[in-house]
Design a protein around this nucleic acid. Sequence first.
DNA 1: GATGAATGAGAATTCATTCAT
DNA 2: GATGAATGAATTCTCATTCAT
Lengths: 200, 200, 200, 200
Amino acid sequence: MSPSPERRRELLSTAAEVFAAQGYNATTVRRIADEAGMLAGSLYYHFDSKESMVDEILSTFLDELWAGYEAVLGAGLGPRETVEALVTESFREIDRHRAAVAIYQKESKHLSAQPRFGYLTESQRRFERAWLGALERGVAEGVFRADLDIRLAYRFLRDTVWVAASWYRPGGQHSPEEIARQYLSMVLDGITPRERQERP
Amino acid sequence: MSPSPERRRELLSTAAEVFAAQGYNATTVRRIADEAGMLAGSLYYHFDSKESMVDEILSTFLDELWAGYEAVLGAGLGPRETVEALVTESFREIDRHRAAVAIYQKESKHLSAQPRFGYLTESQRRFERAWLGALERGVAEGVFRADLDIRLAYRFLRDTVWVAASWYRPGGQHSPEEIARQYLSMVLDGITPRERQERP
Amino acid sequence: MSPSPERRRELLSTAAEVFAAQGYNATTVRRIADEAGMLAGSLYYHFDSKESMVDEILSTFLDELWAGYEAVLGAGLGPRETVEALVTESFREIDRHRAAVAIYQKESKHLSAQPRFGYLTESQRRFERAWLGALERGVAEGVFRADLDIRLAYRFLRDTVWVAASWYRPGGQHSPEEIARQYLSMVLDGITPRERQERP
Amino acid sequence: MSPSPERRRELLSTAAEVFAAQGYNATTVRRIADEAGMLAGSLYYHFDSKESMVDEILSTFLDELWAGYEAVLGAGLGPRETVEALVTESFREIDRHRAAVAIYQKESKHLSAQPRFGYLTESQRRFERAWLGALERGVAEGVFRADLDIRLAYRFLRDTVWVAASWYRPGGQHSPEEIARQYLSMVLDGITPRERQERP
DNA sequence: GATGAATGAGAATTCATTCAT
DNA sequence: GATGAATGAATTCTCATTCAT
């Protein structure tokens, strides 16, 4: 019962757009079907349920995300470069999967209560480990400030990055790499001028 | 219909807690009533509708918020001090109105589509003006970096601050002022060490 | 959420009647509501689901049935008298709970697949034990024929009795006791004449 | 639409099995198709509708049944021998058409409400006439007990026989003839011992 | 003969809301 | 002020059926 993967992908893309715009709960199956030019019932030829749609949207996104993250984490970079690469990779994911990221942001908290979405919690934990690790190493090596509250900094970075999905529009004037650079500049060096910028 | 204001406030506080925890749409009137120890129908003695509950929650919060903000904005502070004061004030609001802030974060986008919630859009605009103003002045006066993308920095600050409502728990180990200080330290000076820290 | 037991009982009685007449699956909640003079949704004020309606119908019936059966089984009767009393009791139950019995007959097989209806299987086992026990003792004591295939005889009795629910109409010309007597006469003595009837 | 009769028969046999196991209403066309190794839509090359499937299953069965019954009824047997032959024939039909019999038992009542299935009602009437005739003649000739309530006895026999379809499994240890003999023994002579068994 | 993709008419269920008591 | 019992509209989902390929 899972024919033509292309059609599925199209429909999932439509669904993701609507979920991101209106929220998962507030989105009716009928609305998705309208957007896809079919009747509500017809969606059930392709998917088991509304839930399985978000499921597929989120898990597909997270699989890709982790492929990118793992590449970064396995590259043997220093802590500062790791943070830079993770942030850049994140903005690239936002660029590619804006809708999925927005859904992840808004819905993962209550979705993860269900066993089916256990992988969300799991992913969050991996996420935390990756970031905290980089930050800790950075502090130890003196490339990040010693007075940093690591957990606070982690939340700060995490939120700062992902929240961008709520306003970012792909194809805008800034490339994801450009936005990443600006974010990093603020995060790493702050918004006040440094006497001597180490990155001119 | 002439209910006591105290009872209303109690009920709104209960409602806010549930809205924040589960989301506005996902929250049933019955759930609120359960939490308040009454039956769903009984809430309608106090309120016109579920919508009027969020309405009152949000507008009460925004009124207080703007009272605080206006005090800051009218105090004739320099741009850096203005930013510091706005951030601190924001964390204080999060401390006092955590639930309302969380609701505002999650729901304002789709609620503001309705005329009734026009004040949300209005508030957002004032918000933007206040922050952008401070940032621009800061850049002009040289207390903020000249290479800053002002709009990006605005979003960065705004999101960074409010998103905290999603994890902040009042009565925790850090006071709002303490959290504000740490956030500001990161935002202003960055997470990498400065050769000469101007705030030792 | 389970108010006024009288209303519940009325509604369950209505529901049972419809379930018995049309079958559980073929009965729509709307049909039950129509019959009860309300809208479909209103039933959900009283019951969780269609399923919980049959559940309550069947378990209430079985509770009463077993109260009657246990009285018989605990009375220390001989095997023939036990069989007579069980049959009579069964027809009394059909008289009182015709609809429930009909539902039990038609639906228990597929309902018992669900964990929630495990008690149906359990009940069936107790049932079997009670009847088989009486038949075995009867054969051992010589009051039932020695050449009897006990399991076949059990099925024969069981089906014979319960199937009556499909045509029996309470308030007809025969009382349940009268029908029981006739059934027993056929079952015990057969439909051919005995040379010397031991029950003249 | 000119499909091969053999394929039809195979498909109908599959369908009958599923209908018998799950009930007509509860059986989806998709389930039948699954079992037959095709897609739901493909069944419509062979059959007009789900309804026409049961129709063909039941009418085929009844045609065969009546062929057997007519042979018995036209053989000029005495009433007791007629009853014996009808019962035996019935168990043979159960052996051959277990699924169809089970469907007939469970569904004929509500199917017969539709004009298309008028032949079910018709068949039932013929059925009743055949059995009542044999019983009446038997009572008149003194081979059945004079105190018999004929209609009750009829129902008793009818149900007793057909209900067996719900537990009978072809290819089990008892042949249909063997089961018929045991049933007849119980029905004719009762389950209590006779002083002088006339059939040793 | 069969598939893939749809349709459209319900189905059960949920829920904000109403209102007589 | 609150309860009990409803309403009615919307929602997700199911399924027999159709039909171009």
